[in-house]
């Protein structure tokens, strides 16, 4: 189990779907810290302002696949450039993936 999942687990507060949501945000935040080489990130932090570039988005997509089991288009990362916006989108995708009745994909 990798470091981000450890961090993500420890940031999972409460239970139920809130837990999934906070857990997803924690995973995404940990990935941002690692890739942008910063000690902490803020929900309003911006991919471009942090010095993001296209190959970094590719690496981010690879991390998200490993950590969340989601295949995220690189375009989605650049089109949702704030940490908060991206986390919310991914949390919804995780929700619908874990809900057996739900749609397993989302646009």
């Amino acid at each position: 189990m990798s470091e981000y999942s450890e961090r993500a687990r420890s940031s999972t507060a409460g239970d139920g779907s809130d837990g999934v949501r906070i857990g997803t945000a924690g995973v995404v935040a940990a990935i941002w810290c690692e890739l942008f080489e910063v000690p902490r990130v803020d929900p309003h932090d911006d991919f471009f302002a942090l010095g993001g570039h296209s190959m970094l988005a590719v690496r981010m997509a690879s991390r998200l696949r490993t950590e969340l089991g989601l295949r995220v288009p690189v375009r989605t990362i650049l089109e949702n450039p704030t940490l908060d916006g991206l986390s919310q989108l991914l949390a919804e995708a995780v929700d619908s993936a874990t809900d057996p009745a739900g749609d397993r994909t989302r646009p």
Partner: peptide, 9 residues
């Protein structure tokens, strides 16, 4: 390919 999909590592 342009959607977020579930995928095993």
């Amino acid at each position: 390919i342009e959607k977020i999909t579930v995928a095993a590592p």
